[in-house]
Design a binder for these strands. Sequence first.
DNA 1: GCTTGACCTTCTTGTTACTGGAAGGCCTAT
DNA 2: ATAGGCCTTCCAGTAACAAGAAGGTCAAGC
Lengths: 133, 133
Amino acid sequence: MNIKEASQRTGLPSKTIRYYEDIGLVAPQRDTNGYRRFSDKDMHRLGFVGRARALGFSIEECRNLLALYADQTRASAEVKEIAHQHLIEIDRRIAEMTEMRNTLGQLVRCCAGDDRPDCPILESLAGGGAATS
Amino acid sequence: MNIKEASQRTGLPSKTIRYYEDIGLVAPQRDTNGYRRFSDKDMHRLGFVGRARALGFSIEECRNLLALYADQTRASAEVKEIAHQHLIEIDRRIAEMTEMRNTLGQLVRCCAGDDRPDCPILESLAGGGAATS
DNA sequence: GCTTGACCTTCTTGTTACTGGAAGGCCTAT
DNA sequence: ATAGGCCTTCCAGTAACAAGAAGGTCAAGC
C-alpha cells in the first residue's frame, strides 16, 4: 500500500513515516514510479514503533527494542532493563511535574485574580518569599 | 559582576545567561573590554526567569510574566490566567505520563527478566494483545 | 617582560522528533 | 487537456539551550 494508507492504518502522519524511513526504522520497497510500497512487515514495524513511542520510549530505545524483537536469542532481562530504566525516568518526570504542580497550585490559589496589581505569583517569582523548595 | 559570578549566584549556566540576553530577556551593560556587567537589576531578572522556568513556564510565558511584573497597572487576574493555563497543561502532562507509567509498569511486572527470549513487553509492542487502553 | 591559566567574547553546529511548505512528478477522471 | 489528489525530494523551523572552536583579556608569578 501507499504511504497515505499506511498512515491511516497506523495512525502515524505520513511525514513521520518518511522520517522513520530516513533514520532507518523502516525500509519499504519502492514501486517503479518511486512511490513507497508498504508490506505487512513494514506495517508491523510501524505499529511497533508507534506503540513504543506512545509509551514514551525515545527513538533510540525504539531502535533497540526492534533489534531485540528481531533477535530470537535475546534474553528478556535485556528488554526488561530498558523498560525499567524508562520507567524510572518517567517516575522522575512525574515527580518533577508534581512538585511544580503543587507549588504553582498554591500560588494560584493565593492570587485574588481581580483587577488590582497585587499578585503573590509575581511576588514569589520575584524572589519575595516562600515556596520553591 | 561578570557572567561567572552571575551564573553562580543565580544557578543558571553562563551559556543560558548569554542565551537569555540573545533573546532579550536580560540586557546587561558592557565594560570597555566587552565583558558583560550584571547589575542588581539584571540579577533580579535572571532570578525571576530562573524561578519561572523551574515552575515549567516557557520562555515566552516568562517574557509575559516579566512584562506584567514591570507593569504597575496590571490586573492580577491576567497573571493568574497565565498561571492557571500552565497549571492545566501540567495536569495534562502528568495524566499522560501516569497513564504511560501504569501501562509500562504492568508490562515490566509481567516480564520474567531472565535469559529466555519470551517477553510480554515485546509482545505487547508487537501488537499481540492488551494494554494500551 | 613574559608566560600561564582562568576568564571572557563571538560564531557555528548539534540536540529531539518531528512539522510545514515549496517545487515538481504521477495518476485518474472528466 | 485539465483538474485534483496523490506522491516525491529538499530546505527551514521548532524549544531551549549545550558543545566546542578561535581568539581577546586579565591578574599572578617568575
